[in-house]
Design a protein around this nucleic acid. Structure first.
Lengths: 184, 184
DNA sequence: TCGCACATGTAACGTGTTACATGATTCA
DNA sequence: TGAATCATGTAACACGTTACATGTGCGA
């Protein structure tokens, strides 16, 4: 029963999906191919090995579903430990590095926040807005250091990154307001 | 003399940097650590092997700079073939898949567009705006298929992606206007 | 002479990508 | 009976990450 390693983003994605809805490897494949979650990789060559790793580490368990239809599927669902690992991932503090380089993983985390009480989503969005604001301030300072005589395209690409982070902060605040309305 | 493989994003980043300014592996390391380009990985363990691959494939060449200072550095610069490969990468048509999953690589490409005449940047930005618009339309349709009764966070995360692409299209058009002003 | 910045690497490891293999079940 | 879909995998390969190794020249 592996203590061991931090799951991959892909493994977390799979863990979250089977927590939302227990399903087989093939079902997962379909999901990855047909929905936006497919941005986190894809293809049997990644999914099946990831599933097996999760099973070896005791985070998911597959049981054969013999409500005979086509072929019997192995339906995976999180174990108690898997559920724990997933939830602690979802609640994990948002770091500067998450914002810097793993914004997509943060969004994946948020997508699974329906597994937690709404208060967790509120905290997530507050924390995100704060972290992103700080990072935007940092980037803005860096932008001012760009020499004016330099060719413009580098600066422009940088500005795009900055724009995205500004949009992220706005998004977080807008979503946050929706949670207030929903729970009042 | 390797014909051979498409360079990695990291390899293109390095190729572009030495095209802008010939430099040593260590200089590259500094650049990756200290600037926004560091979002494309980092650390000696990636840079040095990538440099050597580029050299083996004949895309860059390093010459020892013995204008004796500290230790002699090996200064890398693109070969004729490397320059060609770089430029054809910069001019490559923008695909849906680039937009879907490699927006960061697209921005890297644009950042190096100062190596090309301004007309290339205009074409790039026009093409990007068009491709992104189409993709936004596609995503908007998908958004409408989300069931209303589903938990909201998944939809919200999806909306964030959509927002980013809208911001991207706006950015492309704004930059495009700057190029008109600059060249009129 | 101690330590730090300069400068360049290498080895182990895990994981994702691509491409291929296999076999069951349904339907035309 | 053949094709398409369901369902699950495996093998080769390359790359990035992490961590470690090594040595030089300079200033305190």
């Amino acid at each position: 029963m592996g203590r061991s390693k931090e799951p991959t983003t892909l493994e977390f994605a799979i863990l979250g999906l089977v927590a939302l809805q227990p399903q087989s490897g093939y079902d997962l494949l379909q999901t990855f191919e047909s929905t936006a979650i497919g941005n986190f990789s894809s293809s049997p060559g990644a999914i099946y090995p990831a599933l097996r790793r999760l099973e070896q580490r005791g985070l998911v368990h597959g049981a054969v579903d013999d409500t005979r239809m086509l072929r019997p599927k192995k339906i995976f669902r999180p174990t108690a430990r898997g559920d724990e690992v997933l939830r602690s991932w979802l609640r994990r503090e948002i770091t500067r590095d998450d914002v810097r380089r793993r914004l997509d993983e943060l969004m994946l985390r948020f997508a699974f926040h329906c597994l937690l009480p709404a208060s967790a989503s509120r905290e997530f969005l507050d924390e995100l807005a704060r972290e992103v604001d700080e990072y935007v301030a940092e980037l803005t300072e860096q932008l001012e250091l760009f020499p004016d005589e330099a060719p413009p395209q580098g600066r422009m690409a940088f500005e795009f990154g900055l724009e995205n982070y500004r949009a992220c902060a706005r998004w977080a605040r807008r979503m946050r307001r929706q949670f207030e309305e929903d729970t009042r």
